[in-house]
Amino acid sequence: MSSKRNVVSILALLVVAAVSTALAGDKNAPPTQKIPKGAKVFVAPIEGGYDTYLKDAIARKKVPVEIVASHDQADYEITGTAESQKASTAKKVILGNWHSREEASITVSNIKSAEVVWA
């Protein structure tokens, strides 16, 4: 009699566990935000040839990723925008500053899952 009760209670527990797991699966889970070492990364063209500078910087800073030339070979993609504004004559004369103003923003996305992993 007691063994039957035990079996029933174990079964009930298993059912509850299965239902709760299924419900948890429906919720949105936070994305994994790490790029594995040696991942293949494609840098998409960015205005003003900024992608070239970015590729050069990745190599100089020894970032442990592999840059590929084709989008099809890549696991991750870097897209972005960049804007460079040269110092105007007014800036040079009035502020005595001849440095340009640089603005850039990039996004790294996982090509397979289509999720943005870093920005």
């Binding site: 949105n28 936070p30 994305p31 205005e47 993609e77 897209t79 972005g80 925008t81 960049a82 804007e83 923003s105 990039i106 996004t107 996305s109 289509a114 999720e115 943005v116 870093w118 920005a119």
Partner: peptide, 27 residues
């Protein structure tokens, strides 16, 4: 226009907004 979407995505990350940004509209 002007690539402002990249700044929004970067802002979402900087402000730790709990959203998953995807690059595919269908997903």
């Amino acid at each position: 226009p002007g690539g402002f979407e990249n700044y929004i995505i970067a802002g979402l990350r900087n402000k730790k907004v709990p959203l998953t940004v995807v690059i595919d509209r269908t997903k």
